[in-house]
């Protein structure tokens, strides 16, 4: 007996693993035991599931972050703060020159909803996409359970300074925030604070390194202190930054402990431009026209210093501002 209907056995086999297919616009996402498959008009792109989920986790938690979140050299998102471009090959020189790229623009809230649903569905019990690989299970295999607790953590943002009355609370054992296994030697002493009555909301200090040593996420900047739009975002880094971050403004790194090695590529083409090795006390700018991926051999404390001024992406992309921060 023959049939005229073509059966997509690959899709059927994937469906039997228990994962849903997630779609938005012309994009269609499927997962199997080891990979995410992204179908778009013109083709299909494949990304290892561990890196896909780690990247998706950051893109969701950061609300698409500042500028571009490259999951790999082909697929990613560009934040336009209200809308988001999702793309294949847009920032890949070979895709662009052969006109193989594909882009669609979505309302941020629509894409966020689809990404959150996919992250929840595709993250199995025992796998924490925010954790370093050495402190979590694996994401592979058939669908089994979920890890809602791990994937609904949000970026912590202090309004003025962490620990001030009415602002972000400090972390503690009692609150279920133990010192990370790689930071057991980070001093936990509290500063002496002697505020006169009435000045408790102004005379304030806290142990920032101790606070950060109790972070249970990697590569996830959270705001410690603000001076208007100037934000000190502290983060603990271990293993590899899963995404390659493409800047739409200048950001700065202050390496507070240990060491991170950064690969720097051109933001538009992906061509290598530099390597930056940062040790404790080093400070470096990430220009507005590059993308960067970090490698942290030991868990380290990095302060990412951001300028949250919403007018900046346009001022850099129009050429009004130079992509580098200082001239000398």
């Amino acid at each position: 007996m023959s049939t005229a209907t073509q059966v997509d056995t690959t899709t059927q086999a994937r469906a039997a693993l228990g994962y849903q297919i997630h779609s938005i616009g012309q994009f269609n996402f499927q997962r199997d035991e080891y990979f995410a498959h992204i179908k778009y008009p013109g083709g299909s792109h494949i990304i290892p599931i561990d890196n896909f989920l780690r990247s998706l986790m950051r893109d969701v938690a950061w609300g698409f972050f500042y500028g571009t979140v490259n999951f790999d050299t082909v697929f990613g998102t560009i934040n336009h703060y209200g809308t988001v471009d999702m793309f294949i090959g847009l920032l890949n020189e070979a895709y662009r020159t052969s006109n193989q790229h594909y882009v669609e623009t979505f309302d941020s809230k629509d894409l966020k909803r689809v990404f959150e649903g996919m992250l929840d569905d595709w993250t199995n019990e025992g796998f924490d996409p925010f954790a370093a690989p050495d402190e979590t299970g694996v994401p592979f295999g058939r669908k089994h359970g979920n890890n809602k607790r791990a994937i609904t953590r949000e970026r912590m943002v202090a309004k003025r300074m962490t620990g001030l009355p009415g602002d972000l609370p400090l972390r503690s054992d009692a609150a279920g925030q133990p010192i990370n296994r790689q930071f057991t030697d980070v001093p936990q002493d509290a500063p002496e604070v002697h505020a006169e009555p009435g000045f408790e909301k102004e005379v304030h200090a806290f142990n920032a390194f101790a606070y950060v040593s109790r972070s249970d996420v990697t590569w996830n900047p959270s705001v410690l202190s603000c001076v208007d739009d100037s934000q000190f975002c502290a983060t603990t880094e271990e293993h590899i930054l899963p995404i390659t971050h493409g800047n739409d403004r200048v950001e700065w790194f202050i390496q507070a402990t240990d060491e991170i090695i950064w690969d720097i590529e051109d933001g538009k083409t992906g061509r290598p431009r530099a390597k930056v090795v940062m040790k404790a006390g080093d400070v470096a700018a990430m220009p507005a026209d590059i993308r960067h991926r970090g490698y942290s051999p030991k868990r380290s404390i990095l302060i990412v210093w951001e300028n949250n001024d919403g007018s900046l992406p346009k001022r850099y992309s129009s050429g009004e501002l130079k992509p580098y921060p200082v001239e000398f």
């Binding site: 962490t162 001093p187 500063p191 002496e192 005379v203 806290f206 142990n207 410690l224 202190s225």
Partner: peptide
């Protein structure tokens, strides 16, 4: 306030 390495003050 008295602050040491790692401490941040307003």
């Amino acid at each position: 306030v008295k602050i040491r390495r790692g401490h941040e003050a307003l």
